[in-house]
Design a binder for these strands. Structure first.
Length: 713
DNA sequence: AGCCCTCGAGTTCC
DNA sequence: CTCGAGGGCT
């Protein structure tokens, strides 16, 4: 940003035509350069604010001298593209990630899990497919009536970026499918760059005085996310299909058959794809590909094994964000030795003091690593890490660097001082303590600690919480320093200061207006997100969602919280404080009555609400924000919203499968029978739970009736 | 009481 | 992604 922001701009209306033309040319060049840095190298050279300022200045000049506004001007091209940006695409079927296996043993466990879930014998045949896992980026191609209509990146799995124009420039991707293709077909695969093409691309980049790409994966990512498809067209990107999303008519009844059908339709399919009889052959294939890795010509980071039968895939379904019927069998990660230069302490939003290793820069698996988390004080002690040590570093799952151990010669290591973990917060100086039995040491400063205050606000605006765009850590910190921001409600007061913000260093009128819009867009927030955003201890995304769905809306939640605070029984005769806390915790959990919320979480909820300061913060926030009632799944099934209990042995499906099926139908599955149970499914040899259900007069059905419910939906 | 699984919290790279 | 903790099952 050198010069750009500091340059003193003359008012546009005082410029003569020649000066304006010169400045417009200079601005255009500067914007083009920034564009290249941002889009092609994924390495922005100037801040968004500075970029906005350049663009705004150029637009102002062009507005006064329209003849300077050529068709090629960045205000046209970038402006148009930026307005559209990359459109968001909602995936018809979510794009999931895969569970990882780091060893042969974990692949065998995967196979055992699958057999158990399907109620197969331990030695039953389990046909799998196995193929190399390419280190590129996932792409979903949607064809309607045989024509490519959209191409989207994975994004967060449910929503990705529309890169259709760029995908059309990739030679491996068919624009039209032959007759006979399904009316709707979503093909998923990987976009990547081969080693030779990567080397050539970097040579070309260097020849043009541009930055080299770090690795083929980043180069492919940067190339696909070009705003100008012409640039993508010049990059030799390749594509390999490995799966599918929505399909109007099934193409086969096995994974392998489906992939062959895609091949017949013109999609490139990996020549490493094979059908195997079971996990042992899959493991052998993994070993063979590890040996072939150096001669493949492109990066792979493991092998993917999938259950071949599609009817089994369907039964297995999904857990959290990954399918139960596939596993990524990773290759051993690359390791490297480097020097531990320092250990810094970071303070998180809960006050947790986290040690971070500062490392002498070292290339591991194609990326230069300089930092790595050390988790906590015990971890440092366990590995006996000392500043000055030579340490072994690897990138776990090829992403996050970790320090494995030190490899310093003993005499040298012994001479280094042991690391003394601070007992005071490095940010605010407050005492930092450890709860008995806990691994983390926490700053006790609470909101008086500037680090905690900032981290809590960062959490509030983060994508998974309230999701206010354009507010990063630095901007938040600046607002806090100005005294404009202390608690979440203050965020909604920022738009009142729009003109003041526009005048700040690094801001412009456009960026300030954009911020005001982003904030205004979040005056209605789904209750679950809002609850998560409050940052109550132990209440993360999932718990917040479960709780919000259970209570429904904000008044109901507030009533529950009030009731928790009101529940304050005195200790019984001779009851120790620990026992008392435990008993009350259990009582609170029972009051909440939501699966997954036990004594600890219930107590955290009460403690949060018992704090007058927190209630004020929430009241202040609700002056601006309307919580949207959590939408309750009202699926068309007879068990939606009901609590089910399975008992006895099910003959045709495992307990896990039954539970997953019930949850798909919107039911909740509990472990024990109580008055809250709506329906009991009794299998063979049902015992005490069935007796209790009969005593309580609950509805009880057998497995046949249960299957009928499943079949009816 | 002990085990397994899920969830929460913190972090890295770009 | 990993580790630790909480919750629920056996």
């Amino acid at each position: 940003m050198d010069g750009a922001a500091r340059r003193i701009d003359l008012p546009v209306d005082t410029l003569d035509h020649a000066t304006a033309a010169a400045e417009a040319a200079r601005l255009s060049a500067e914007i083009e350069r920034a564009n290249r840095a941002y889009y092609q190298e994924d390495a922005p050279e100037i801040s968004d604010a500075d970029y906005d300022a350049l663009l705004a200045r150029l637009a102002a000049i062009e507005a006064r001298f329209p003849d300077l506004a050529t068709a090629a001007s960045p205000t046209r091209r970038v402006g148009a593209a930026a307005a559209a940006g990359f459109r968001e695409v909602v995936h018809a079927r979510p794009m999931l990630s895969l569970d990882n296996a780091m060893s042969d043993g974990e692949v065998r466990e995967f196979a055992a899990r699958v057999r158990r879930f399907l109620s197969l014998a331990d030695d039953a045949a389990l046909p799998l497919t196995s193929e190399a896992k390419i280190d590129g980026l996932s792409l979903s191609l949607r064809y309607e009536g045989g024509a490519l209509v959209s191409a989207a990146t994975r994004g967060d799995g449910s929503r990705g970026e529309d890169v259709t124009a760029n995908a059309r420039t990739i030679a491996d991707i068919p624009h039209r499918l032959p007759a006979g293709a399904p009316a709707v077909l979503e093909v998923r695969g990987e976009v990547y760059l081969g080693w030779e093409d990567f080397t050539a691309l970097n040579a070309a980049q260097e020849a043009q005085g541009q930055k080299r790409f770090v690795n083929p994966r980043n180069a492919a990512a940067g190339s696909l996310r070009q705003l100008d498809p012409a640039v993508t067209a010049n990059r030799p990107l390749r594509f390999l299909a490995h799966g599918w999303g929505e399909v109007s008519a099934p193409l086969a009844d096995t994974q392998y058959g489906f992939m062959m059908a895609l091949k017949a339709l013109g999609f490139p399919v990996s020549d490493t794809l094979v059908q195997v009889e079971g996990e042992e052959q899959a493991i052998a294939h993994w070993a063979a590909l590890l040996a072939r890795r150096p001669s493949l010509g492109f990066d792979i980071d493991g092998v993917v094994h999938k259950v071949d039968r599609l009817d089994w895939q369907e039964r297995l379904g999904f857990v959290a964000r990954s399918p139960r019927w596939a596993i990524a069998h990773k290759f051993p990660p690359e390791q490297a030795l480097t020097r531990l230069v320092a250990i810094d302490i970071q303070v998180g939003r809960t006050g947790a003091l986290t040690p971070v290793a500062r490392l002498a820069p070292i290339s591991v698996g194609g990326v230069v690593v300089t930092n790595a988390t050390l988790h906590n004080e015990d971890e440092i002690a366990r590995k006996d890490l000392r500043v000055g040590d030579l340490v072994l570093v690897q990138r776990a799952g090829d992403v996050i660097p970790q320090v494995l151990c030190h490899r310093t010669p003993e005499a040298e290591h012994a001479a280094l001082p042991t690391f003394a973990f601070p007992d005071h917060c490095p940010e605010c100086g407050s005492l930092a303590t450890r709860e008995p039995g806990e691994a983390v040491r926490r700053c006790t400063g609470g909101l008086t600690c500037p680090a905690q205050r900032l981290e809590r606000l960062k959490h509030f605006v983060s994508r998974r919480a309230v999701d206010i765009e354009g507010l990063g850590g630095e901007r938040l910190a600046a607002f806090i320093a100005l005294g404009w921001l202390e608690r979440p409600g203050d965020l909604y007061r920022l738009p009142e200061r729009e003109t003041e913000i526009a005048a700040l260093d690094g801001w412009g009128r456009q960026s300030a207006a954009k911020l005001a819009i982003a904030i205004a867009a979040r005056r209605e927030v789904p209750l679950d997100r809002l609850l998560f955003a409050l940052g109550i201890r132990h209440v993360g995304e999932v718990t917040a969602r479960d709780l919000a769905r259970a209570v429904g809306d904000w008044p109901a939640l507030a009533a529950l919280l009030d009731a928790l605070v009101a529940h304050d029984p005195a200790p019984a005769e001779g009851e120790t404080p620990e026992r008392h806390a435990k008993r009350v915790g259990a009582e609170l959990a029972a009051m909440v009555g939501v699966a997954g919320i036990g004594p600890e979480v219930a107590t955290a909820l009460r403690d949060f609400w018992a704090e007058p300061h927190n209630r004020e913060t929430v009241a202040d926030l609700l002056g601006f924000v309307t919580p949207l009632p959590a939408r309750i799944e009202t699926r068309e099934s007879p068990v939606a919203g009901k609590t089910l209990v399975f008992t006895g042995t099910l003959e045709t499906m495992s307990r896990d499968e039954a539970k997953a099926a019930a949850e798909r139908l919107g039911a909740r599955v509990a472990g024990s029978v109580s008055a809250k149970t709506d329906l009991v499914i009794a299998g063979r040899d049902a015992g005490s739970k069935l007796r209790k259900a009969t005593e309580l007069g609950l509805e009880v059905i057998d497995e046949t009736a249960w299957r009928a419910i499943l079949a009816a939906v």
